[in-house]
C-alpha cells in the first residue's frame, strides 16, 4: 500500500483542523472530488467527457430529499437504509439511460448531448413542482442519526466522506482491471477493432455510464446532507461547469486528478475573497480554467507527473497517455 501514509494523514486530519477547515474545505473538497471522479472515470477510461454528472448526482440528492425528512412537505419519509440504496439505484439508472442516449456519440458530440441532457434536467427541476418543488426545491434535509451519532456533525461527516472517497477510488481501480473495464478501455482506443472482434459495444458503454452514475450518486447523497438542501440551482449550469473545471484543473487523464482539482477549486473558492471582489469569482475561475487549458492541458496532476518524471528520468516508466 504505497498510499498508506497519505491515508493516515487524511484520517488524522480531524485532530489538526478546526471545524471550518474540516467541513468547509476538507469535506467539501472530498464531496466535490467524488462527483468529479465520476466524470474523470468516464473521461479517462471511456474517453467521453460527460456534462450529465451533475444530473446523476442531483437525482440521488433529490431522492434523498424526497424520501427523507425535509421541511417542504413533499414526498414521504422512508428509513435511511431504504432511501440511500434507492438513491444510488436511481442515479445508476440515470447514468445507464444517459449512456443509452449517448452510446453512439464520441468526443464533442458526446459533450453536446450530455450537456443537453444535463441542462434539460435543470429546466425540468425548475418547472416541475410535484416531484422537484420547482425553484425552491427542498430544504431542511437532514443526514440520518445512526446509533445516536449525528452524521452531519463535522468529524463523522468528514470520516464518512473520506471512506466513500476511498471506496470510490478502490471501486474505480477494480472496475478498470475487470474484463468489462478492459473492454471499455479497448472501446476508447480502438472501437472499430472491438466491434470487429464481435464484442458488442452497447453493453460496456452503458455499463460505464451506469457505474459513473453510481459514483456521482454517492457524491450527490453526501452533497445533499452537507448542504441540507437541494434545488434546481444544485443541478444547473454552475455545478455542471464546476465539476468539469475541477476535473480539468486536476487533470482529465487520471482519476486522482478529480481530488487534486477539487482541493484546488475549494481553496480558490474559499480564499479568492482575499484576492478579488467576491462577485468576480467567476471571472477568476474562468481565467484559471483558460490558463490550464492553454498551458497545461493535463492539469495539475499532469504537471506533477511530468515534474516527477523529469526529476527521476530513469526510475520513472513513461506513462502511456491517450
Amino acid at each position: 500500500m504505497k498510499n498508506a501514509p497519505l491515508l493516515a494523514v487524511l484520517l488524522a486530519l480531524p485532530l489538526f483542523l478546526n471545524d471550518f477547515w474540516l467541513t468547509q474545505v476538507a469535506t467539501r473538497a472530498l464531496i466535490l472530488g467524488i462527483t468529479a471522479l465520476s466524470l474523470s472515470f468516464l473521461a479517462t477510461y471511456l474517453g467521453v467527457v460527460s456534462f450529465a454528472q451533475a444530473m446523476m448526482a442531483g437525482i440521488a440528492g433529490y431522492t434523498i430529499a424526497y424520501f427523507g425528512p425535509n421541511t417542504v412537505a413533499i414526498g414521504w419519509e422512508l428509513p435511511f437504509w431504504l432511501s440511500i440504496p434507492l438513491a444510488l439505484v436511481l442515479a445508476t439508472l440515470a447514468g445507464a439511460l444517459t449512456g443509452l442516449v449517448a452510446r453512439r456519440s464520441r468526443g464533442i458530440y458526446a459533450i453536446m448531448i450530455t450537456l443537453a441532457i444535463g441542462v434539460a434536467f435543470f429546466y425540468l427541476t425548475r418547472q416541475n413542482y410535484s416531484l422537484f418543488n420547482g425553484w425552491t426545491g427542498f430544504s431542511g434535509v437532514r443526514a440520518p442519526q445512526v446509533f445516536g451519532l449525528n452524521l452531519r456533525a463535522p468529524v463523522p461527516l468528514y470520516l464518512m466522506t473520506l471512506a466513500v472517497a476511498v471506496a470510490a477510488l478502490v471501486l474505480v481501480a477494480g472496475f478498470v482491471r475487470s474484463p468489462l473495464g478492459l473492454t471499455i478501455q479497448a472501446l476508447r482506443d480502438a472501437p472499430g477493432r472491438v466491434r470487429a472482434l464481435g464484442i458488442p459495444a452497447l453493453g460496456p458503454i452503458v455499463a460505464a455510464f451506469a457505474f459513473s452514475g453510481f459514483i456521482a450518486g454517492a457524491g450527490g447523497i453526501l452533497n445533499v446532507w452537507y448542504n441540507e438542501r437541494i434545488s434546481s440551482f444544485s443541478v444547473g449550469l454552475g455545478p455542471i461547469i464546476d465539476i468539469l473545471i475541477i476535473c480539468v484543473i486536476g487533470g482529465l487523464r487520471h482519476p486522482a486528478g478529480a481530488f487534486i482539482g477539487a482541493i484546488a477549486f475549494v481553496l480558490l473558492e474559499t480564499f479568492a475573497v482575499d484576492l478579488i471582489d467576491r462577485d468576480r469569482f467567476n471571472t477568476l475561475i474562468g481565467l484559471v480554467l483558460l490558463a490550464i487549458v492553454m498551458l497545461a492541458p493535463n492539469g495539475l496532476q499532469g504537471m506533477a507527473a511530468a515534474l516527477v518524471a523529469r526529476l527521476r528520468p530513469r526510475a520513472a516508466t513513461p506513462k502511456t497517455s491517450i
Partner: peptide, 9 residues
Amino acid sequence: LASIAISII
C-alpha cells in the same frame, strides 16, 4: 473547454 472558460468570463 477554452470556449467554456471564455463564456464564463
